[in-house]
């Protein structure tokens, strides 16, 4: 199972670039997609989900060009869009039955399948209530259940943890790990920790381009020797920020503790090098000028 994206370009009206010559090869497992707003993550995911046509380039899934034949991926796709809605007058069970019909699955096992999925997202007790009465997190869980409905071989989650409480986020990560054994899972998120925990590989995007791809460990390793911590007086904060990329800070009564990235070590006793994390790498790569 492989998803091969070659030279994918999306240009909108008035010359705005959504994707610029984007190429990547994705195998089984979880690919975390990171990037600032407007990086092109949702555009890429919509094109893979066959609901947006690229200006140029190709996408092959197991050798099938899904730009020419979008139904080839629709059969094996599970998709949770960023801006996901529901029909408020249907209950969760009816909604999933509708989603199953859209995906072209049915038969005697469907009812059981829906029940298991509803149980898996902790909605069994509320399955017969109209979705219009659900909280945001519950609706998001309905969305997750519908994405898993057809045992998808390609699973796309665009900002899936929005609206989920911390416990649900942990559960979601477990769920995806369980489902990802035999599928390609592409997960886009602003929450780096969500990606860092479960992604086998991470792709970082900026301005419609792929700027780095690799395992979280490999990307983080590139930052070794560049992440430091120090403390400075409050008055020096603005000056410090103009020279360094500050990735974290905590304010104390008489000083500020800072975590920052620098290409050079300063040899100052007040500054100590620390182990980098994926968030450091993400901020460094996306704020660097290309």
């Amino acid at each position: 199972m492989e998803l091969e994206i070659k030279n994918l370009t999306k240009q909108y009206n008035k010359g705005k670039i959504g994707l610029a010559d984007f190429s990547v090869s994705i195998g089984k497992g979880i690919l975390g997609l990171l990037g600032p707003n407007g990086a092109g993550k949702s555009t890429l995911l919509k094109i893979i989900a066959s609901i947006s046509k690229p200006t140029g380039g190709t996408i092959f899934v197991n050798g099938e060009n899904i730009i020419k034949n979008p139904n080839a991926i629709r059969k094996i796709l599970g998709y949770l869009p960023q801006d996901f809605g529901v029909y408020p007058n249907l209950n969760a069970y009816e909604f999933l039955t509708y989603m199953a019909a859209l995906k072209g699955i049915g038969g005697h096992g469907l009812k059981k399948r829906i029940e298991i999925l509803l149980d898996g997202v902790n909605l069994t007790a509320d399955a017969k209530r109209p979705i219009g009465s659900y909280s945001g997190g519950m609706k998001q869980r309905v969305g997750i259940a519908q994405a898993l409905l057809n045992d998808p071989k390609v699973l796309i989650f665009d900002e899936p943890t929005v609206g989920l409480d911390p416990e649900e986020r942990v559960r979601f990560r477990q769920l995806i790990s369980e489902m990802a054994n035999n599928a390609i899972v592409i997960l886009s998120s602003h929450i780096v920790s969500d990606i860092e925990t479960i992604a086998d590989e991470v792709a970082i995007m900026k301005n419609g381009m792929l700027i780095d791809k690799g395992s979280p460990a490999a990307i983080t390793k590139k930052m070794e020797g560049k992440v430091f911590e120090t403390s400075i007086p409050h008055a020096e904060l603005d000056g410090f920020r103009s020279k360094h990329l500050v990735t974290d800070m905590s304010k104390q009564p008489d000083h500020i503790n800072l975590r920052y990235i620098s290409d050079t070590s300063h040899g100052n006793a007040n500054i100590k090098g620390v182990n980098p994390g994926l968030e450091d790498a993400y901020l460094y790569l996306t704020q660097k000028q290309y």
């Binding site: 019909a101 096992g109 059981k112 399948r113 298991i116 999925l117 902790n122 045992d151 477990q174 035999n182």
Partner: peptide, 14 residues
């Protein structure tokens, strides 16, 4: 509940 993939009934195209 854990979603046991093995417990999920087979997909029947319709």
């Amino acid at each position: 509940s854990k979603i046991e993939k093995i417990a999920l009934p087979a997909i029947i195209p319709a």
